[in-house]
Structure formats: structure tokens, C-alpha cells
Amino acid sequence: MDKFIETINWCSLRDIGFVGPRFTWLYRKSDGSQIRERLDGALVTSDWLNRFPSAKLFHLSSSASDHSPLSLRLVPKPRSRMAGKLFRFESMWLKEPRCAEIVQEAWGEGLREASSDVLGKCLESGDRNTRFFHAKASARYSKNLISGLMDAREVWQEEDSKVEEIVVDYYQTLFTSSNPSDFVELLQAVNPR
């Protein structure tokens, strides 16, 4: 297993994660107990992930096999809420000698685009870590992006209004009181100081 992990790292591969049940393999023992594992997945390179940033691997259900079939969806889903990219300051820009001057000019002229000049300088100077940091930032963005959620009926929903409805319902249920009236058991569990 160590050689396999070493090879994955040497090839700079990463698991793209999954949507659906956690396990892809089920073994039923003769005593009725079960062994469940995630044996199946997808490893990709950073370049592949840049080409297919919205790719999702789905674990599907199967009654015909002890392995879950996998479905890889590559079609990008347009996000209606992303009007524009947020500006994020990169601390590596501080290495650029003209950074303070460029920032002052940008503030004076009201030009947000000037920030890209600092980034351009860093890229021109051949910063070896730029590609690594970009891959990390892209992976973090993909990881944090909610492209869909499972609803109460276990149906995957991707439509923005449906996802919003699932989140609102979840938190309304979570923070709705059941109006308990008998607090005796609860109060007995509290130790006075």
C-alpha cells in the first residue's frame, strides 16, 4: 500500500471525492454482519481538474452487485450567482519591490485592475510555487463549492432554488423547538458548582 500511495504522490494525483453513499463495496458475512469499504474512486491530475472543474463522481446504488457503479459527470453547470470573481490579496505580491507604489496608485486612481500588475510581475519573475499555489487554490474552491445536495427523499438536487430550499429546511428543523415540557431528566444531568 505504501508503494501505491508513493506512486499517487509521485504522479501528483488527487482523489476528486464523490457524491452519494460513502461505501462502494459491501460484503455480507454468513453471521449476518457486513463489511463496507470505499474501494472505488477516481484519481486525477491538476491539469485534468482545471479542464473539468465541475466534474463530479457519483456513487450509485446496485442490487445486482456487491460493488456500487460509478458515474463521472463532466458537463459544467453554469452558476447563476457568480456575477464576478472576488479580489483576493496574495501575500507573495509583497515580494515585488514596487508593490507599495502600485497599491498607492490603485487607491489614488480607484483602479482595482492595478492589482493584477503585481501578480503579473510575480508570474514574470518565474516564481516556481505559483503553479502549486494555483492548484491548491483551485482545489480549495472546488472543495468548497456546493453544486448540489441530497433532499429528504434522497434525490440529488442541483437547481439553486432547490439547494437553497434544502438548506433552509435543514436549519429551520434544526433550530425549531419541539416545545419540551418535562425538564426533570435534563436538570438531573446538570451538576451544580
Rank of each mutant, 00 (worst) to 15 (best):
K56F: 05
I5M: 08
A137W: 15
A64W: 10
E90P: 00
D169L: 08
K3G: 05
V103H: 02
A55N: 06
H59S: 11
S178K: 06
S62L: 11
E90A: 01
G20T: 02
S65H: 09
G84N: 02
T130P: 01
N50M: 12
K3R: 12
R36F: 14
Q172S: 07
W10H: 08
N191S: 12
V75I: 09
D182H: 00
R88A: 02
Y171N: 06
T7S: 12
N9K: 12
S54C: 11
S80D: 05
D47A: 07
W93R: 01
E90Y: 02
R22E: 14
G41L: 01
S12Q: 12
E124H: 09
G20H: 03
S12W: 05
K29F: 15
S65E: 09
D117I: 14
D117K: 14
K56M: 13
L39T: 02
I35A: 13
L119C: 11
A152Y: 09
K77E: 09
L57V: 12
H67C: 05
D2S: 10
T130D: 09
W156I: 02
T7R: 10
L186Y: 09
Q188H: 10
E185S: 04
N144E: 14
R38G: 07
V155C: 10
R131C: 10
S54T: 06
I102Y: 04
W48M: 00
K121W: 14
A135Y: 01
Q172D: 13
A106S: 13
Q188T: 08
G41N: 04
Q34M: 15
D160V: 07
F183G: 00
L13P: 04
F175C: 07
G148I: 03
S33C: 13
R36E: 13
S61E: 15
R98S: 12
G120P: 10
V184I: 06
S80I: 08
D160H: 00
S115D: 15
S63Y: 10
R98V: 10
E185K: 03
V75T: 10
R128T: 13
E90L: 06
F52R: 00
Q34P: 04
E96D: 14
G110E: 10
G84L: 00
S63D: 14
D47E: 12
S147E: 11
P78N: 04
S46M: 02
